[in-house]
Design a protein around this nucleic acid. Structure first.
Lengths: 199, 199
DNA sequence: TCACAAAATGAACGAACATTCATTCAATGT
DNA sequence: ACATTGAATGAATGTTCGTTCATTTTGTGA
């Protein structure tokens, strides 16, 4: 099980370093320091190892925001900010993982096995955001705001910022990304958010 | 030159159908109906053919919004809406092209040659949006709105909606995406946009 | 109609690929 | 100390990859 994890790490590194096209058995072997046969011994095939990488990535991301969404003593606005901060945390938003994320995203259409892992956002994540925004709308009496529309907007905004990070991880500032989100939220819910007050 | 274009089409179809990893010389040959040697005869290598695909895609996208940005007799708000509509036009936002777009995006980090083509948005496009928003801010006296922040937000939103389309092109509604954009713009610039008035 | 050049073909090639499996090694129980 | 078993190894294998190039076909000017 030690070597199994080592192979997942090596495969992830290979995708980051060489792209998914350049991720060959030889490269994985080199980066892992293990022998040729290990991939097939532990995973059956290279393809299944790649699925295991997707699975781990997906699990890490889900664990990140779910731990926050479950915290009980937090108002909807503060909870939402916490989730946003978690979304820009280096634990999930780092050059390597995002590069892998995008590689799998590109593959998803022609490789249905991968799809469930890279689409994880769109299921439960959406539901949590929607509920928080509904609470905020109710609290603040924002009667002109459609919660579903605002949810779509916020999630698309997050996706777009991730894309920006993927292409420009060298100059991307998580602080700045958070500011952009809060600016949008303030525009929608002026009585709940003040984007100048970020820590 | 006839066959040259045919090869670009076939390569693009291959990326869409089989993913970039599954895009082999044999597949391109099959889809093009041409002979084995044609790729190397016309492009020198498969890799250069892929670059030509990226170039064409990039040129088509740039041509799309630039023709609108150059139209003289349009207020900044209307011009912005036109650009948004163009961004969701089937000419650029269709399953095949977006799939290719995302494949190249994923490759960009490990293949610097591709980067200039897939990053085209972030140069002149950003400048145009920024200028339009500055005009709107000036016109409407939105003194609390930072134009650069709003530009970042809007572009990230567009990127995110493209991502949504990529993963769910079957259920994605361009009309709905436009509505989301207008909703966000209305939140920022209430005296310039009314998202209930879309055609 | 013929000569010539350019374009197109596809069999053949070496390189790189993922995978296999006989063998070796290390860990554990007796 | 020895036997047993599962993990690890890496040389060997067959396949698929992108590319080459001698040959054929097509198009053009005389």
């Amino acid at each position: 099980m030690q070597n199994r994890q080592q192979l997942i790490q090596a495969a992830a590194d290979a995708i980051h370093k060489y792209g998914i096209r350049g991720t060959t058995s030889a490269r994985i072997q080199e980066l892992s320091g293990l022998s040729r046969g290990m991939v097939n011994l532990h995973f059956g095939s290279k393809e299944k190892l790649l699925l295991a990488v997707a699975e781990e990535l997906s699990a890490r991301y889900a664990g990140q925001w779910k731990s926050i969404a479950d915290s009980p003593e937090l108002g909807p606005a503060d909870k939402l900010i916490s989730i946003l901060k978690a979304d820009f945390d280096p634990l999930v938003l780092n050059a390597r993982d995002v590069a892998i994320w995008f590689s799998f995203r590109a593959e998803a259409l022609s490789n249905p096995d991968i799809f469930p892992f890279i689409d994880s956002r769109d299921k439960s994540f959406r539901a949590v955001i929607l509920e928080l925004l509904q609470q905020i709308i109710s609290e603040g009496g924002y009667k002109d705001v459609d919660a579903k529309l605002a949810t779509d907007a916020l999630i698309a905004l997050l996706e777009g910022l991730w894309t920006d990070f993927h292409l420009h991880s060298d100059i991307f500032k998580p602080q700045e990304a958070l500011k952009i989100c809060l600016f949008v939220l303030q525009s929608m819910f002026p009585r709940h958010f003040d984007f100048k007050s970020i820590s």
